[in-house]
């Protein structure tokens, strides 16, 4: 049962990442592979504040979201000048640059040593302290956050703001002709997505209680992209489905009993194969409404 709770927490975190990236990629059509950077910012802010200064988790979470928003604003401004292929490349480059910062800015992030001893969230009501030390309680927190993100995503996509985003995806120039300042919309959704990713990062840091730069490399961004491509772009439910599938499936491989050399590569193989086959036979993913 504990194992199921563990997988559920991980799925929840990935689902938040998927839903937030979906807003950027699926709805607005901005193919960003920089998302792991914001995931990392949320995680590192939480880690540093919790492990180093004993700050309350929820405060650290807010600060992480704020920093992610600020960085996203800067990066978003840079990226908004590009379209399509160049957007991908630029976001890729930015991801690698931010990863370098995580890895090399030793005084702040301890570089490859990582940050251990991150505490679990604590709630203080009056004089009573309640710590989320059991995994089950952490699962509740994660699900709560996931549901909030889900509702926020639904709200955005059903609003007129969301409709403008989808219009940008389909034909940005036409919108501009109509007088819409598309740059602002793109920037806004990029920042919103980044803030959500930071929430996932904070949860991740507090759950595993240890983070190091290797969790925020380019391959993580590619993994997130695969989650929503599999689940189907422009579909919030799809993002959740994709997250659960891509978290649980590799774990199931653990039980199949392949020789260990093959097992690790098999995971990558299936994952790459899934991307290729999806592109050939079902580019809109499982539940998607938007064909790339």
């Amino acid at each position: 049962m504990e194992y199921v709770i563990h997988l559920s927490i991980v799925s929840g975190i990935v689902a938040i990442l998927g839903m937030s990236l979906n807003l950027i990629v699926g709805y607005t059509g901005l193919l960003s592979v920089a998302h792991a950077a914001f995931y990392g910012i949320g995680a590192y802010v939480t880690a540093i504040l919790l492990a180093g200064f004993g700050v309350n988790f929820f405060l650290a979470l807010l600060l992480g979201m704020a920093l992610a928003a600020a960085v996203a604003l800067l990066i978003g401004l840079v990226l908004s000048r590009f379209d399509d292929d160049y957007y991908v490349l630029a976001s890729l480059g930015l991801n690698i640059i931010i990863y370098s910062v995580f890895l090399n800015w030793n005084t702040l992030t301890r570089g490859p040593l990582g940050i251990p001893g991150i505490s679990r969230p604590e709630l203080g009501i009056g004089g009573y302290r309640f710590g989320l030390t059991s995994n089950f309680s952490f699962l509740v927190l994660t699900l709560l956050c996931a549901v909030l993100v889900y509702l926020a995503a639904r709200f955005i996509t059903r609003s007129s703001f969301g409709r403008v985003l989808m219009a940008i995806r389909e034909d940005e120039q036409a919108l501009q002709v109509f007088g819409y300042r598309t740059v602002y919309y793109k920037l806004a959704i990029f920042v919103i997505g980044a803030v959500m990713a930071a929430v996932a990062g904070a949860l991740f840091a507090s759950y595993i209680t240890f983070i190091d730069p290797t969790s925020f490399m380019l391959r993580e961004s590619i993994f997130m992209l695969s989650v929503i491509i599999l689940g189907g772009l422009a579909n919030t439910n799809g993002a959740v489905a994709g997250a659960v599938i891509l978290v649980v499936l590799p774990e199931l491989l653990r039980f199949v009993g392949l020789p260990s050399n093959i097992a690790a590569q098999m995971r990558l193989l299936l994952y790459g194969l899934a991307l290729v086959l999806l592109m050939i036979y079902r580019p809109q993913g499982l539940f998607g409404k938007y064909r790339l």
Binding site: M1, E2, Y3, H6, F210, D212, E251, S260
Partner: peptide
């Protein structure tokens, strides 16, 4: 019971979780 950690924190964490909880 042998589990692969791949010299990676996240992977080792999953492996440990399986060993501890299952």
């Amino acid at each position: 019971i042998y589990e692969d950690g791949q010299c990676n924190g996240a992977v080792a964490s999953n492996a440990a979780n399986k060993l501890i909880n299952i």
